[in-house]
């Protein structure tokens, strides 16, 4: 029931994001979506690719520090209020979100990726509220 994410450390230095993309491109890996958390002197690039296992290997070979994390993916309609409804459900259930980002799938639906502290509990709550959880079938488990 999870979406696997690859995160890499970015030193605050020109060219690091480009290096990341080059590493994926050289191994013919496609980026589905990514987001960057930036602080004053470093960044964390989080990405979903079409082959995370391969991505982790090529990124490590290219000298990146890599971590693999499972996120909760929820599909919503790509229209005003689509995300607001999901968030108010989570808010009412007292779920604390560490970060989230999104992308629009080829079928026109929006995919929201959540990092939450207690993922199993959150899945239960989302199921009870009939939210559509997407399982990409790849996970670190």
């Amino acid at each position: 029931m999870l979406v696997n994410q690859v995160a890499v450390f970015l030193e605050n230095k020109q060219g690091r994001i480009s290096d990341f993309c080059k590493a994926l491109s050289s191994a013919d890996i496609n980026l589905i979506t990514m987001s960057i958390a930036d602080t004053t002197d470093f960044g964390i690039l989080r990405a979903i690719t079409d082959d995370n296992d391969k991505a982790i290997k090529v990124l490590k070979d290219a000298g990146f520090t890599v971590s693999s994390t499972d996120l909760l993916g929820i599909e919503v309609e790509d229209k005003p209020g689509g995300l607001a409804d999901v968030l108010s459900t989570m808010d009412n259930a007292g779920i604390n979100i560490e970060y989230l980002y999104s992308f629009v799938k080829k079928d026109g639906k929006a995919m929201i990726l959540f990092k939450v502290a207690n993922i199993d509990e959150t899945i239960e709550i989302c199921k009870n509220k009939h939210l559509k959880i997407i399982d990409t079938g790849i996970s670190i488990k």
Binding site: Q5, A7, F9, E11, A37, T39, F42, I44, R46, T65, V66, S67, T69, E98, Y99, K115
Partner: peptide, 15 residues
């Protein structure tokens, strides 16, 4: 240097 042991996908852990 950043290390595997230290790295996390969350900023607060590193901070």
């Amino acid at each position: 240097e950043m290390s595997e042991a230290l790295f996390s996908d969350e900023v607060k852990t590193i901070e």
